[in-house]
C-alpha cells in the first residue's frame, strides 16, 4: 500500500473538464513531478489535494486514513489540510509577520504548541533552508528566493505527510532559482514525500523518482525520469518534450 493513494479525482470549471478521473499512488519518500502543457490541470490537481479547490469527485488516502475530497464537513477539511502542506508559486508569506513568525504561525495556531517549542522548531527549519540569519526580516525585506525558502520552512515545520509544491520557482528571477531548487532537493533527501509541479526539467530529471505527464486532465504517461526523457513511448509526450527542447534527436532540428 502506498502512502498516498488518489482515486478518481475529477474537477470541472463550468463545462470545462480540468481533471478527468485521475488515479495516482505516491510512496513514502518519493518525489513525484507533474509535467505537462499549461492548462492541463497540474496546479488544480495539487489544489484539490489541499481542498483549495473542491473537486466533483475523488478521494485520497493518506497513510491509511481515507478522505473524501468532496466532503462538506469542515472538520474533515481541516484534518486533510493538516496532512498536506502547500508551497505556492507566489510564496504567499504572511506579509505582516517576520520570517520566524511566519514559520511559527502554524505550529502555534494549528498545532497549538507552546511558544518556546514552536520557536525552537521554527528556528531549526529556517536554519535548514539557510535563513537563520534573517529570522526577523519581513517578507518585504527578502528576495523572492529567500521568501520561497521561508515558505518551504513554513510548510516543512508542520511535518506534512505530503508536501505539495505548485511551480515553486516560476515567479523567481533566473538567478534565484538555484537556491530554491537546492532547498527542495535537500527536503527530498531528508525523506519528505513531495508532489511537485514544475517546468524545471533538468531538476525533475535529477531529483524526481517518478514523473507524471498530464494532458487534458488525464495521466497520459508515467514513469521514471529515464523512461520519460530518454525513451518516451507516448506520441503526445514526445511532442511535448520536443516543444520544450528536451528531446533532441537529429530529426528534430529542421534546417
Amino acid at each position: 500500500m502506498s502512502l498516498i493513494e488518489i482515486r478518481n479525482l475529477s474537477k470541472k470549471f463550468g463545462n470545462n473538464v480540468i481533471l478527468d478521473g485521475v488515479d495516482l499512488n505516491i510512496n513514502q519518500g518519493e518525489v513525484v513531478a507533474i509535467i505537462g502543457p499549461s492548462g492541463t490541470g497540474k496546479s488544480t490537481l495539487l489544489r484539490c489535494l489541499n481542498l483549495l479547490e473542491k473537486p466533483e469527485n475523488g478521494s485520497v488516502s493518506v497513510d491509511g486514513k481515507n478522505y473524501n475530497l468532496t466532503t462538506k464537513s469542515s472538520k474533515e477539511v481541516l484534518a486533510l489540510r493538516q496532512e498536506t502542506e502547500m508551497v505556492f508559486q507566489q510564496f504567499n508569506l504572511f506579509k505582516h509577520k517576520d520570517a520566524l513568525n511566519n514559520v511559527m504561525e502554524g505550529l502555534r495556531v494549528v498545532k497549538k504548541l507552546p511558544k518556546a517549542e514552536a520557536r525552537r522548531i521554527a528556528v531549526a527549519e529556517l536554519e535548514k533552508v539557510g535563513m537563520s540569519d534573517r529570522l526577523h526580516h519581513y517578507p518585504r525585506h527578502l528576495s523572492g528566493g529567500q521568501q520561497q525558502r521561508v515558505a518551504i520552512a513554513r510548510a516543512l515545520a508542520l511535518k506534512p505527510k505530503l508536501l505539495l509544491m505548485d511551480e515553486p520557482t516560476s515567479a523567481l528571477d533566473p538567478e534565484l532559482v538555484g537556491e530554491v531548487l537546492l532547498t527542495i532537493k535537500r527536503a527530498a533527501r531528508e525523506g519528505n514525500t513531495i508532489l511537485l509541479v514544475t517546468h524545471e526539467m533538468d531538476f525533475v530529471r535529477n531529483v524526481a523518482n517518478k514523473i507524471i505527464f498530464l494532458e487534458n486532465g488525464k495521466i497520459v504517461a508515467e514513469g521514471t525520469p529515464k523512461e520519460i526523457f530518454e525513451n518516451p513511448k507516448n506520441e503526445r509526450l514526445r511532442e511535448f518534450l520536443r516543444n520544450i527542447n528536451m528531446l533532441r534527436t537529429a530529426d528534430d532540428y529542421v534546417i
Binding site: 489541499n50 481541516l78 502547500m86 505556492f88 508569506l93 504572511f94 502554524g106 495556531v109 515558505a151 508542520l158
Partner: peptide, 9 residues
C-alpha cells in the same frame, strides 16, 4: 489560501 493550507479554521 496559505493560511487555509496550513490547516487554519
Amino acid at each position: 489560501e496559505a493560511a487555509k493550507s496550513i490547516g487554519m479554521s
